[in-house]
């Protein structure tokens, strides 16, 4: 089957710092691909380029065989290339329900509708509730996003992404800052989600990565140094030296 996402020679630098160097990568549909690498390896910069928040200096990005390199963030999101944010990026003044309903609204035709009360749109609210139940926030629908705990905000972030009906979901460190219990819940959630949606997971938590990933790529200093099955990555001497070794030594 052809790749859902294909990166061809993606390069990006900020002044002297090369955050992406000639990155080539293919993601197969229906799989969970994890992207790991030490701090400052350029993981988030890569996610930003794939999602359209950041323009690459060189190289091309294909999403479902369409060249999306020149498309903006919003255009890619409408095609189903959806991302979550490392630091939960929500509408703090809106309730949890409205946050997700707005995402559903983005997929429900034109929003140039000026009269009917959006808060009473049963179809949007129903979709939002499904997504919120899905991530376990069913009890918190009425809470303002700004009042939710850190862990709940991370889950809400995932619910928002789900309501966007992603064809490829880019998850930027969904486990960051979660407690042990919350991590376990998030892990269980992603275990079931991965059967439904293709994902690219950027993550620091190695336990989570090796529990979830079908494929793993390793980014170090802006370069992809290895890509393959989790076991092969774990065994690879180059990866151990560049990355995993540091953790073991620590």
């Amino acid at each position: 089957m052809s790749a859902i996402l294909r990166l061809e020679g993606l390069s990006k630098r900020f002044g002297a710092l090369a955050v992406s160097q000639d990155i080539c990568l293919e993601l197969a549909p229906g799989r969970l691909h994890a992207l790991i690498g030490p701090n400052g390896a350029g993981k988030t910069s890569l996610i930003n380029q794939i999602s359209g928040a950041l323009a690459p200096d060189a190289g091309r990005i294909f999403f479902e065989d369409e060249d999306v390199t020149r498309l903006g963030l919003a255009q890619r999101a409408r095609r189903g290339l959806v991302r979550s944010f490392q630091v939960a990026s929500l509408f703090d003044g809106f309730s949890a329900l409205d946050n997700v309903a707005l995402a559903a609204q983005a997929r429900a035709g034109s929003s140039f509708r000026f009269f009917a009360r959006a808060g009473k749109a049963a179809d949007l609210n129903a979709k939002a509730r499904v997504a919120l139940d899905r991530v376990g926030l069913g009890e918190r629908v009425g809470r303002r996003a700004g009042e939710l705990s850190h862990g709940e905000r991370r889950l809400l972030e995932i619910a928002v992404a789900l309501a966007c009906q992603p064809r490829l979901l880019l998850l930027d460190e969904p486990f960051a800052g979660l407690g042990v219990e919350e991590s376990a819940e998030a892990l269980a959630l992603l275990q079931t989600l991965k059967t439904e949606v293709t994902m690219l997971l950027v993550e620091h938590d190695m336990e989570a990565v090796f529990a979830l990933a079908d494929d793993v790529s390793v980014l170090v200093g802006g370069r992809l140094i290895a890509s393959g099955a989790p076991e092969a990555i774990r065994q690879s001497p180059a990866v151990r030296e560049a990355y995993l070794g540091e953790e073991e030594a620590a």
């Binding site: 928040a53 999101a77 959806v82 003044g93 995402a103």
Partner: peptide
């Protein structure tokens, strides 16, 4: 509240 997020939703 959050223009970047709005774009990420597709607006």
């Amino acid at each position: 509240q959050n223009p970047l997020r709005v774009r990420a939703l597709g607006f």
